[in-house]
Amino acid sequence: MFHPLRVAEVRPLTDDSVTISFEVPEELRAAYRYAPGQHIAIRRRVAGGEVRRTYSLCDPVPGEPAAGGPGGSTAGPRRLRVGVRLVEDGEFSTYALKELLTGDVLDVMPPAGRFVLEPRPGRFAAVVGGSGITPVLSQIGTVLAREPKAAFCLIRSDRTAASTMFLEEVADLKDRWPDRFQLVSALSREEQQAGLPSGRLDADRLTALLPALLPVPAVDGWYLCGPLGLVSAAEHALRILGVPRSRVHQEIFHVDEPPPVPVPAAGPRADGGTVRATLGGRAGSWSAAAGESVLETVLRNRSDAPYACKGGVCGTCRTKLVAGEVRMDRNFALEPEETGAGYVLACQSHPVTEVVEVDFDA
């Protein structure tokens, strides 16, 4: 469910990125509590429709207010802050960098997502690229502040020093926890005086680099975030190094490859079939048009169906397949454990059987 939130600040980070802060009214703060690594979906209404985008929250999770504090404060954040990088021909990012002003109001969905690191003792590491630093920044700040027996190693890759997001914030983390926070930076298009030689962090390079930086088998959790190419390379390197799949968590920020070419409808899908869905405690059954995704069918009848990117990346439209069979075009959001448990992405799922039933509340 979206709520209108006022923009408290739009602050430049680099030439092509900004942070946007939203004010959260006291009565909504409980609804906007978040775990380190989660994201929010932002909706902007435009002539003839709307634009939705998903951005990760970058601040450490705020501490709980004192019980019975002034005004009876409700636990939850007073502000939400996200980082937005300009994307070529990006409708929302262009608006955010060039037009959005303090005082403007945008619709914001409560935090969601499973790319989460809850504070606990242990050794953790992240490999991030570009704006993939955003959710990991929240994870690092939260776990180091709340868990004195935690340590974190951050390996980040950026094009140039000038394009590096949250440079000051990461430096501050290093100053605050020099013994528990290790930072390694790589620039793909620029030489730097300290740190790694320039160049991309591909699978071969990461396979050689990671054991030189930290004891790989002793790392309790790996967090990979950024473009598909970097995340795939890091995942491959960790697999070569023998890291159990259960310790690897990933979130894709950008997919370079084009969407798959739709497969022509076959069998029962030739006449569309039927989609049954439970959403917000209410169930419905609707005829599907041939070639429609499950999400498209539901949206024609329930405008409150959850979605953001429609590209199989953010996971906002995650739903449980209760009955029937679907073909999922692509998936960059669900873990193998989730798909094994029957979860699918509604935006990428096309009915194969005559009747498909899903549960968005599961």
Rank of each mutant, 00 (worst) to 15 (best):
P110V: 03
I140N: 03
V108C: 07
D175A: 15
T102A: 14
D204W: 01
G76A: 06
E99S: 10
G130L: 09
D172S: 14
R176N: 07
D179F: 11
G195I: 06
F166W: 04
L86M: 11
P77G: 09
S131Y: 06
P111N: 00
R78E: 15
P148Q: 05
Q182Y: 11
V87M: 13
F181S: 12
L106K: 03
V87R: 10
M109W: 11
T102M: 12
A75Y: 08
E91D: 11
A212H: 10
A162E: 15
A151L: 11
R200Q: 03
G90R: 07
P197C: 07
R205C: 07
L167P: 01
R156D: 12
L144H: 08
L206Y: 05
R180W: 02
L213M: 11
F92Y: 09
D172N: 14
E168H: 14
A171D: 14
P77F: 02
A208W: 05
R200A: 09
A203L: 09
G83V: 06
L201T: 04
R156F: 11
D204H: 05
L97M: 00
G76M: 02
G122L: 07
P135H: 00
E168T: 13
T74L: 15
L209R: 01
F124K: 06
V116M: 01
Q192K: 12
R146G: 07
L86S: 05
D107Q: 13
A212I: 02
F124V: 03
A150N: 07
A145T: 08
R200Y: 12
Y95C: 08
R81S: 08
I140S: 01
Y95L: 10
S185D: 13
T134K: 08
R85I: 12
S138K: 05
A186Y: 02
L167C: 12
L209I: 04
R114T: 12
R180E: 08
R78Q: 14
L187M: 15
V127E: 01
E91K: 09
A212C: 11
F115Y: 03
I140F: 05
S73K: 15
F166T: 00
S93F: 00
E91R: 15
G103P: 03
E118C: 00
A186I: 07
L213H: 09
D202R: 03
L80M: 01
E99L: 10
E168L: 13
K174W: 13
